[in-house]
Amino acid sequence: MKNTVISVRNLVKKFGNFIANDNLTFEVYKGEIFGFLGANGAGKTTAIRILSGLSKPTSGEVIVAGFDARKQPEQIKKNIGYMCQKFSLYEDLTVKENIMLYGGIYGMKKQLIRDRTRSLLERLQFEEYGDRLIAALPLGLKQKLAFSVAVLHEPKIVFLDEPTGGVDPITRRQFWEMIYETAARGITVFVTTHYMDEAEYCDRVSIMNEGKIEALDTPAGLKKQYQAGSIEEVFISIARPGKN
């Protein structure tokens, strides 16, 4: 039996009369790479805020890492990691200082942070960069480091917001290998992105449109179901009827 780490049942989130999330129901499993797609304004951001304990559902049941999003948001925050494209590391701190800071925020013991820092830098072949300022690193390195830091405290789930936007194809593949490696360790990776070819790397993909989840399957399954050559075509055939 698959081990469920995110369980969402009949989630509704309203802002006044506006329904941002309209009766979402889905599950995400341990060690899975889950792609969360949707057009601008489809309700992705709202859903992620709820899943990460930043906002409470209007109704419905949301269990993340075993905790109720309504009653135990603080518990959820301790058990997830988060990385977005724009902001995650402090540019004016060094690599090591950033790691220390992050570990400290999550209440990790000094010795543990030191050990993990060493193995992290080793794994990334980053040893020489330890004392450099983040600002001085190339974009690709920054993103890889940001991801490693986001899973430093071994969270149950890590949320990635457009993780590989704007990087070169090689860095991008290195990044996805890191994601695969993380998922293989049992950490669930929850990816949101506008870029459909990124979705093709995920184990399963959900597509949101106007507050609802319209499709959820493996990339291959979706392509088959919509008789499309790519996830992009699937996405467009889902999102376009509602637009003009």
Partner: peptide
């Protein structure tokens, strides 16, 4: 097309 969803990009 950076930061714009797939439908708008198409």
């Amino acid at each position: 097309t950076t930061g714009v969803d797939a439908v708008s990009r198409a």
